[in-house]
Design a protein around this nucleic acid. Structure first.
Lengths: 248, 248
DNA sequence: CGGGGGGTTGATCTCCTTCAATCAACGTGG
DNA sequence: CCACGTTGATTGAAGGAGATCAACCCCCCG
């Protein structure tokens, strides 16, 4: 546990923004109240480390608000992001008492935490939690495999386009706007974080973003505010086939 | 379903080589007999495709014997392996009726199959299956993330060394021999398959294997038979830190 | 003997990294 | 209020790791 995190008041599960998508999504009223009793919130500032790889981890948690990254670092400092944690995503692994990755807040972050032992205990008695966690883990596995294709086979330009497309699509779904035509959003990551995610250097990231701007695929206002005039055009740059991705 | 696969006689679950490690690992006698009633075996020849990405998939299965690969291909032919399926590994996703990846046998392959609907049905009533599947999926997710680090940040030489180390270690555990000092094993993959796994070209794979041989890290007899005179030396070439990997 | 699959090696090219300078935005202390 | 340092980003020049294109080898099999 890091020193400068803040402990904040619990919110009612009924009003929780991630109620229908997190590990608790399938829980009945009685199951939910069990979780409600044991939950507690923690918040972190942008840039703050939630946990270091190898640290003892006595809790599991759901991201309620904000964005965090999951990353691995080699001895010589090379680092690779292995996951982007968005609201409703789950942190920690039942049955594992040490963190396997570094978890870092990139924006202000609020997490809904459960001490590990009681959570695992409840999971044994509540199939709904395990079922939902399985579903979420399978989704993460698909995402990880999609990322393996990106890391192993895509060009720098395709990597950038793919990342932008993913963020754009996520943002559009969140705002309930259409994923076609013009899309506007803010980048939640620094150039360095993007580089760590994409297996590139930050200079290459910067150059490719400039190139996409020069070619009219995107427009930039400041460093972070992005306008995609034609989402289809962006998709063409990702190298993915035109249809819906994993499900052909 | 491919045309030239063979249907073979069922084996008794009690004698099954993967009984204690597959999805069925935690099942009680009664649960096991339910699975036993619905299971059927299929075999495939080396090089044969088990299923194509996008195909309808009416079954799930466990690998009983042999090795298969899970891979993704882009329209222009670039392909990336996203998983290596070894005995006891699970194929297919409950709740998904189309394959998300190409599955190909690299050796002669035997799978223990279950039709999807009855399997999902049983899974609802049998928490032991879901629990074990969750555990296995979490392991796969860890493996995928380790592979992301390899694909995104390791050099060609480190990639080859890492792959050799993984195969060597797996082989040693299988033979119950020590993972230190001299290790001998056979490569289950062609140079091309290795390239697809590592995000390299087959030429680079060949060159780096030659380099490791030249430097005395490995010895080759034929194209496939490998001797690692000093496993620690090989580990030094992987770029991973000396201690146990994911669990620091 | 011919042919093909799998593998090695060489020459060249290119995309991305590396190293470095520069810039804009921002905060801070004299 | 301005000099200064810091952080995040852009851009340039040079170099290198790995890709690409191509020739050739080995071995098995029909």
């Amino acid at each position: 546990m890091s020193s400068s995190e803040t402990q904040i008041a619990n919110q009612d599960c009924a009003d929780c923004p991630i109620r229908h998508r997190a590990v608790c999504a399938r829980c009945e009223a009685d199951e939910l109240s069990m979780l409600e009793q044991m939950k507690y919130y923690r918040s972190y500032e942008p840039g703050q480390t939630v946990i270091w790889s190898g640290d003892r981890m006595d809790f599991v948690a759901s991201v309620v608000e904000g964005i965090a990254t999951l990353s691995q670092t080699m001895e010589d400092g090379r680092t690779q992001m292995v996951g982007l944690l968005l609201p409703s995503d789950f942190v920690g692994r039942p049955g594992r008492d040490h963190a396997a990755y570094d978890v870092t807040a990139t924006t202000r972050l609020t997490m809904c935490c459960f001490r590990r032992a009681p959570f695992e205990d409840l999971m044994q008695r509540t199939p709904h939690i395990g079922q939902r966690l399985l579903e979420m883990t399978l989704d993460e596995l698909d995402a990880a495999r999609e990322w393996m294709l990106l890391l192993g086979r895509k060009t720098a330009r395709e990597k950038i386009a793919s990342l932008l497309a993913i963020i754009a699509r996520r943002d559009a779904t969140l705002k309930l706007s259409a994923t076609q035509g013009q899309i506007v959003f803010d980048l939640p990551l620094t150039r360095e974080a993007m580089a760590d995610y994409l297996g590139l250097t930050l200079e290459t990231v910067s150059r490719q973003i400039s190139a996409l701007k020069r070619d009219g695929v995107i427009e930039l206002e400041g460093k972070r505010h992005v306008t995609v005039p034609d989402f289809e055009r962006l998709m063409d740059e990702t190298g993915d086939d035109s249809d819906g991705g994993v499900f052909a």
